[in-house]
Design a protein around this nucleic acid. Structure first.
Lengths: 345, 345
DNA sequence: GCGCTTTCCTCAACCGGTAAAGTCCGATTC
DNA sequence: GAATCGGACTTTACCGGTTGAGGAAAGCGC
């Protein structure tokens, strides 16, 4: 990688053209005081004429600030592509980064350990000024790594999972409870849940909340399984639930993402079961996908774009030295559509 | 952004600890000849003990090589999240970048002009060593920009769209022709197509190929519309096609992506039309989504991950100075599933 | 007219690496 | 025994900015 821009214009050329020193150009471009209006204008004019922009590499070397934040995502590529969550989250992150002329360094990794290593490498190599961490699991190695390195990070996950790191999170337990209460209020007694990856902290929390809610409401057949979030796993789980003996068969199923709910809908159709007549389905995240099916999918809905934006804002806070904190974003709310109704009979 | 790693270990510290000069450490870490085995080992040991990794910022400043490639994607955030194509493409790109210890700088932009400006800024600011350009349109400003800047880029798009830039592309015209011929062979005479964004070059090419194929096969009612790729637009287009007078109503519809095909499936269901009995649907790209519906969606299928990987490989070729070239990747092939069948009657 | 600020700008030392030229030294050659 | 050579490092000059310590000129009070 040694290709170089055709125009090797540097601050020196600009300085020469404007008839000032390098220092003056630097002052002008960093909007610092100590230059007359006239000189400043001359400098900008010279820069414009030469098509010069400060070399960010050199800048971050001398000022030791890096206008790049890292994001490593650890899920199989196959699942990532389908998960609308991430792209929306990333776009929210971007929207805030852009305001700060900051860029996003993205990497897809296979394991948390690999991710922890990557973060360390990025940080040690001064490639990033901070990082957003997602998909926390119990005893996540990244907590210790970030603390040890003193790297500014924002952890997207419940405070109980993210140790002393500043966190941004949704109250999934409350949302799960609301989902279950809603279905129970419709009259469902056998409610099942197709959860996400068991290793992920928020899956554990949702699972516990689901159990608790079912107990509270006196629902006997609260049946949950963990999956890998893929549509295929969602279909498989749904199939095994809907082929259970009639007395055990759930009349409502809650999914941990949209994809699995879509897959569940297909399974119901394939088995000749009506939705919501024979079984109600409730999705999670509520991407547009939920409005593209027939029937449309009821979902626990939240603003994923805003979630990403808040994570980025919080990261800037951490970088500029605000103390650790916990930043809840709005709890997902139930958005009823065509896939939920009282159980038949 | 002035936070700094707790450990301000530099090459100097490592050199001191190993009892050598900075230069020696540099030689060791760049695997260059001129050091004895013993010294090299001592240097690596010292680096390991101090937890040092070379500061990539400093390295790229002095060596003027940048191990980062840029990717700007220009589509509304809302659509991006749903489009499995991009994440899969990115994951393919990543898989190759990782082998070269190279990172991906990602940005979502709103317009091509904004993108062209961003690329220039990235390049001028030495943030990237090259870039992958996607979603070409006619007279795309990025072609001129890349040439003017002398920036290594690989253009993902048909050579007719990408000027003198090295390109990586799929033969969409042939794929469209295959799709139409397949549907015609099943007996369909009224075939429609729900296309992507009209501004995009490959939409134009697919549209032309569709027209040509229909003419060749003597199909009267070849009906096409352009959309913005969103599921909603796909649903709207499908609805208007399926509500046409019986004599005009298409018996088969080809979509330009998966999402719109899923939406089309829902529209058919909502209208009480059977798929594939009353209308056949054919998706494009063939993400896993196509296997999660009922019926499953027949699709023009290609290896998007491999497409991304090839783009990245080609970019490395450009960066290391290989001449311009044109790199076709395999043409999408028809993968029949449950959503296509001969027309009723 | 003299000292004292202020304002505006220059100078030179970094930041942490790379790379080309230079040094040292034991082995080989004639 | 002097000249040559190559291996193993070291030295030093950058890369392109930032930054803090000056310094010259203008303005001001007395």
């Amino acid at each position: 990688m040694t290709a170089s821009p055709s125009s090797r214009v540097t601050i020196k050329d600009v300085a020469a053209r404007a008839g000032v020193s390098k220092g003056a150009v630097s002052l002008a471009f960093n909007r610092k005081p100590g230059l007359s209006e006239a000189t400043r204008d001359r400098i900008f004019a010279a820069a414009r004429e030469l098509g010069w922009e400060p070399n960010l590499t050199a800048r971050s070397l001398s000022s030791s600030r890096v206008d790049v934040v890292g994001l490593a995502i650890c899920r199989p590529a196959r699942m990532l592509g389908l998960e609308p969550f991430y792209m929306e989250f990333v776009s929210g992150v971007e929207s805030v980064l852009t305001e700060h002329s900051c860029s996003l360094l993205l990497r897809l990794v296979r394991t948390v350990e690999e991710e922890a290593g990557l973060l360390e490498s990025w940080w040690r190599g001064r490639q990033i000024g901070g990082s957003i961490l997602v998909d926390f699991r119990a005893d996540d190695p990244r907590v210790a790594a970030a603390e040890r390195l003193g790297m500014p990070v924002v952890a997207v996950g419940h405070p109980t999972l993210t140790g002393s790191l500043t966190s941004v999170w949704t109250d999934d337990a409350t949302a799960v409870t609301e989902a279950v209460r809603y279905l129970a209020a419709l009259g469902h007694r056998r409610i099942a849940r197709v959860g996400g990856a068991a290793a992920l902290g928020h899956t554990v929390m949702r699972t516990a909340a689901f159990d608790a809610a079912a107990r509270t409401l006196g629902l006997a057949g609260a049946w949950q399984v963990a999956t890998d979030y893929s549509g295929e796993a969602g279909a498989r789980a749904t199939r095994s639930m809907l082929t259970a003996a009639p007395a055990d068969r759930p009349t409502a199923i809650v999914y941990d993402n949209d994809i699995m709910a879509v897959a569940g809908l297909a399974v119901a159709a394939e088995m000749g079961l009506g939705v919501p007549g024979d079984v109600s389905l409730l999705a999670w995240d509520d991407s547009q996908l939920c409005r593209l099916t027939h029937p449309t999918l009821s979902a626990m809905s939240h603003d994923v774009h805003g979630f990403g934006a808040e994570a980025a804002r919080t990261l800037f806070g951490v970088i500029t030295g605000s103390g650790p904190g916990s930043h809840p974003v709005p709890t997902p709310v139930l958005t009823p559509r065509g896939s939920t109704a009282p159980p038949r009979g």
